[in-house]
Structures are given as structure tokens and as C-alpha cells.
């Protein structure tokens, strides 16, 4: 996994994170170390097919019976901006 400025910026953009130039440089170095460390994955011998191809026991499905929803007030308690009915964010395209 090559870590360069382009890759770093791509990941930051996807993850909605930003860094100051100094921090970005520092984190890139850290990520480079981690990337080398992660390459160790390729050294694992005799890898088997991935877990998801195995037939594990299936999910127990939930019965389609209504529960009681939470109070709107409770759900909005922790929000930064709302008008009592709807959550508010700045303009979205």
C-alpha cells in the first residue's frame, strides 16, 4: 500500500477529515509505518477462503410487529440545531 500525498488526500476526503499541513505530514509518516506493518498480511501462509463463503447458521429474523417508537423530544435532545420537528443542517446540494 503506497502512501503518498494523493492517497492521503483521497482517504481524508472519503472520511471527511482535514489536517493542517504539519499534521498531514506527520500522519502520512505514521500511515507509512502502518502500511509497512500491514504488508505483513501477505506473509500469512495457507490462507483459506474468506469467512463469508462458509455457511454459518443464518440470522434469526425479527417478527414484523410494531414496537413503540422513541419520543421525538428524546431523540432530539442531543442535537445541535432543530426546530422541534425537524433536524436542521446548513444547505445541502
Amino acid at each position: 500500500m503506497k502512501i503518498n500525498a494523493e492517497v492521503f488526500e483521497y482517504a481524508s476526503k472519503l472520511a471527511k477529515l482535514k489536517f493542517s499541513q504539519a499534521d498531514a505530514a506527520k500522519e502520512m509518516e505514521n500511515l507509512k509505518d502502518i502500511a509497512v506493518f500491514v504488508e505483513g498480511l501477505k506473509e500469512i501462509p495457507d490462507t483459506l477462503p474468506e469467512q463469508t463463503e462458509r455457511r454459518e447458521p443464518g440470522a434469526k429474523l425479527r417478527e414484523d410487529v410494531s414496537g413503540v417508537p422513541f419520543e421525538r423530544e428524546t431523540l432530539m435532545e442531543n442535537s445541535s440545531d432543530n426546530d422541534g420537528e425537524l433536524f436542521i443542517v446548513p444547505q445541502t446540494i
Binding site: Y10, E50, Q51
Partner: peptide, 19 residues
């Protein structure tokens, strides 16, 4: 998880897990 890396890292890690 991103395109281009998924197979080489995440998928490989899942297999390593099985091992």
C-alpha cells in the same frame, strides 16, 4: 476498504482470520 485496496488488504485479512 477503498477500490483498489479491498482485495489486497481487507479481503486478505478476512482470509487470514479464517487461518
Amino acid at each position: 476498504l477503498s477500490a483498489g485496496y479491498y482485495d489486497d488488504y481487507y479481503k486478505l485479512a478476512l482470509r487470514a482470520r479464517e487461518t
